[in-house]
């Protein structure tokens, strides 16, 4: 067979790329243009709707402005930074934020425990898994309404149970006692958040190589050692992903605190501002007081904190993977 014939046959069966003819090249160019345009759309969207706001808020941090008028901005020599970083309420909001975000660790532990129990395939475990995801589907607004009623100081079911079990002295003034107030938001978060993690972990547990367990059993490893030495390392990527997503969501917690702690007549969100997360404070400064420079500074603080938190977890994960 002549060389050209061979090429023609190979082309016909799709074995080699045909030689680029003029028409073919034009087609490739068209394809390349199409590809470039379609992948640029999301990137342009990001630049416009995330990039521009980030840049604007960065500039506004260093300026005074009237209301929301960007035309009125004027350099203010770091006055906004001085104001925010000497504001006790801001530090209180950071404390509340960290407190609320720490609920994500508890939520992660519950996710892991429940997924391990579900994977033991006891009676009804399929049904349990379906039920466990329900809170995650519910809107934070409806969830807040439900739990605010449960925590009600006088008529709520929680105080009713506490009083029934331990007498009138056990009644907790959930909405009036600053030392317990933040626990409400913590508990609601722990109630709502694990559903996603349970399903994620369940899938991850299912994909661990069974041969590893068999080998460990031959070596005489007990259940706890197997869990610690095989299960935990195998599901580490899932753990880091869940931790990252959870901590970011926790640090930016807004819906539940907003519903629980509307500003009262003294201008506080919960007793002693114990329901005030930083994002809620940002919202109050920006919307109620039209103070966008302060809102921008505080948003940037949260921006940096969440970025560092996710960056650390990302690095930890990479190191773990290199070790494995």
């Amino acid at each position: 067979m002549a060389y050209q014939e061979k090429v023609a046959v190979a082309e016909a069966v799709g074995a080699v790329e045909p030689a680029p003819t003029a028409r073919r090249r034009k087609k490739i160019n068209k394809e390349a243009a199409f590809g470039l345009i379609t992948v640029l759309i999301p990137l342009i969207g990001f630049v416009v709707f995330s990039g521009f706001p980030i840049v604007i808020s960065f500039i506004v941090m260093f300026c005074d402005m009237d209301y929301y008028n960007l035309g009125s901005i004027a350099w203010n020599n770091f006055a906004t930074f001085q104001k925010v970083f000497t504001d006790d309420v801001f530090y209180r909001s950071l404390l509340v934020t960290l407190w609320v975000a720490s609920a994500q660790f508890v939520s992660l532990a519950i996710s892991l425990l429940m997924s391990v129990l579900l994977s033991k395939k006891v009676f009804g475990s399929k049904v349990f898994q379906i039920l466990f995801f329900v809170p995650y589907v519910c809107s934070s607004i409806a969830v807040s309404i439900m739990w605010m009623w449960m925590f009600n100081d006088s008529f709520g079911i929680i105080n009713d149970l506490l009083v029934r079990m331990f007498g009138e002295g056990a009644r907790v003034q959930w909405f009036n006692d600053p030392s317990v107030y933040t626990w409400m938001i913590f508990i609601v978060t722990v109630w709502q958040a694990p559903g996603y993690g349970i399903v994620m972990y369940k899938a991850a547990l299912g994909s661990v190589d069974p041969a590893l367990y068999e080998a460990a059993q031959m070596d005489g490893a007990n259940a706890w050692t197997q869990f610690y030495k095989i299960t935990l390392p195998s599901i580490a990527p899932t753990t880091f992903y869940l931790l990252m997503a959870g901590v970011i969501a926790g640090l930016l917690s807004f819906d539940i605190p907003k519903l629980f702690s509307p500003l009262d007549w003294t201008g506080e969100a919960g007793p002693d501002n114990m329901g005030l997360t930083t994002v809620l404070y940002v919202y109050i400064r920006g919307m109620t007081y039209h103070d966008m420079p302060a809102a921008s500074v505080m948003s940037w603080v949260m921006f940096v904190i969440t970025f560092i938190a996710s960056f650390i977890m990302f690095k930890m994960r990479n190191r773990k993977e290199r070790e494995a």
Binding site: F49, I54, I56, Y68, L252, V279, M292, F303
Partner: peptide, 12 residues
């Protein structure tokens, strides 16, 4: 973490 910038986006 663009979600942290939801409120300042209001200006934009």
């Amino acid at each position: 973490p663009t979600a942290a910038m939801t409120m300042p986006s209001f200006l934009f």
